[in-house]
Design a protein around this nucleic acid. Structure first.
Lengths: 227, 227
DNA sequence: CATTTATGTTTTGTATACAAAAACCAATTT
DNA sequence: AAATTGGTTTTTGTATACAAAACATAAATG
């Protein structure tokens, strides 16, 4: 079916290599929501034994990317519309916190990184590579989260974003006007410079809201078409 | 050293039983921060093989209760003061969100559950059982989180609380006047009834703040005394 | 004496073997 | 035709064996 090749150059335990491989495959949509994750199958495909596969599954599970039923095995986690709403509610609150922290803690280096991320995003939109665009947008927001100087916050948000990443990815695919996103990015940078917490929070909220309906449609279609 | 007995009555895979056992031991302080989690050792102690132990460790890891270095093994996660501050920053934001959601979504059943939790807490303080007190306080707040009708939020908060639970536990031990906590609980309930978001947020914030310095002292002492 | 080198032990990493549960499927019964 | 039964296959759960890396310690070398 799919490729699923291991990236062996890393000096990591196989469980981590397998985890990264499966995670990527899920995020990119190569492994679809609901698809079973069978151990021997994956083990053969990746050329390793079941042991590291199992450990990787345990890791995916706690990232919310896989769900396992005892004695029945794991499958790629599905998301309902309600799940998405719940996630966004949280994401919004954490974005708010992030903006507050960032406004008071951003250094000049952080601003430079943010500007750079903005350029990279602009570039990506010009070439139209979906993957590159999504990653560049991710990076822009990650710079902001990094600026909070709160690594735990970064972790949690990374985790939450991961859960909807694949849907977002599909959504971006169907889009080709990114000018309003570029616009929002500029406003966010500007607001952060002026330490205008309220202003930035609002833009971020809009930015997030803009994605919702599209992704929701996607989920509805996907969950509708199957059994 | 410690007891560490498995609770076999459950029809769960061993990895889950082991996970619960280790988690409890860590939260109760039977396994101390920094203590090594050696596979054969634990396997012998619990009377199982290394396989379920490893999977349980992977789960603990992603709960933030254990940290593993490749080829060196896992240990119970330590927390620095900075970690605690970071966690509280997040907790505070999520408490805020929870209050907002709860205020608009609480049902009569939720209120009843909250009142009940309050009584249980009051009872627990009278008997002075540390464990019971901590659990009752947990339960009170859990009812509020449940009222948000956002299970993802519940999960995240549960996870975050878990990371500082053991410290809180130690802290409560050294305390014996719980009247102000009872007081705060009453105010929170009252505020929720009146749907006064701002008021409840503030009490919750204080409630949280009250615990900080004590727990911080504890961490400072603990991290000071070793190597 | 300090520093390396050799060596044995401990501990994690990975593969594999076997047991037990679940899923499947066809045949039989109602 | 629907439901039940029995047996076969697939798949997960668990234990164990072996390999490789880290660690400790003692001997050897400068």
């Amino acid at each position: 079916m799919e490729e699923l090749k291991l990236n062996m150059d890393a000096f990591l335990p196989l469980r981590d290599v397998v985890f990264n491989t499966l995670r990527d495959a899920i995020l990119k949509g190569e492994l679809e929501p609901g698809e079973r994750l069978m151990e021997i199958h994956l083990a053969n495909k990746l050329g390793v034994s079941r042991t590291p596969i199992r450990e990787a599954i345990r890791m995916l599970e706690n990232e919310g990317l896989a769900v396992t039923v005892p004695r029945k095995g794991a499958q790629v986690a599905k998301m309902t519309e309600k799940d998405l709403e719940d996630v966004l509610e949280i994401r919004d609150a954490l974005d708010g916190l992030a903006v507050e922290c960032a406004c008071s803690r951003m250094t000049e280096d952080d601003f430079k990184a943010l500007e750079h991320a903005m350029e990279v995003f602009l570039d990506a939109t010009k070439h139209g590579e979906v993957r590159a665009i999504v990653e560049a947008d991710e990076e822009f927001h990650n710079v902001i989260y990094k600026s909070t100087k709160n690594p735990k916050l970064m972790n949690i948000v990374a985790n939450i974003k991961e859960q909807m990443y694949r849907y977002r990815y599909e959504y971006i695919k169907g889009n080709n006007d990114f000018s309003h996103i570029v616009d929002e990015h500029e406003k966010i940078l500007d607001g952060l410079r002026r330490q205008d917490v309220k202003f930035v929070k609002e833009i971020m909220h809009t930015h997030l809201d803009n994605q919702i309906s599209g992704v929701k449609d996607l989920i509805r279609r996907q969950n509708g078409q199957e059994k």
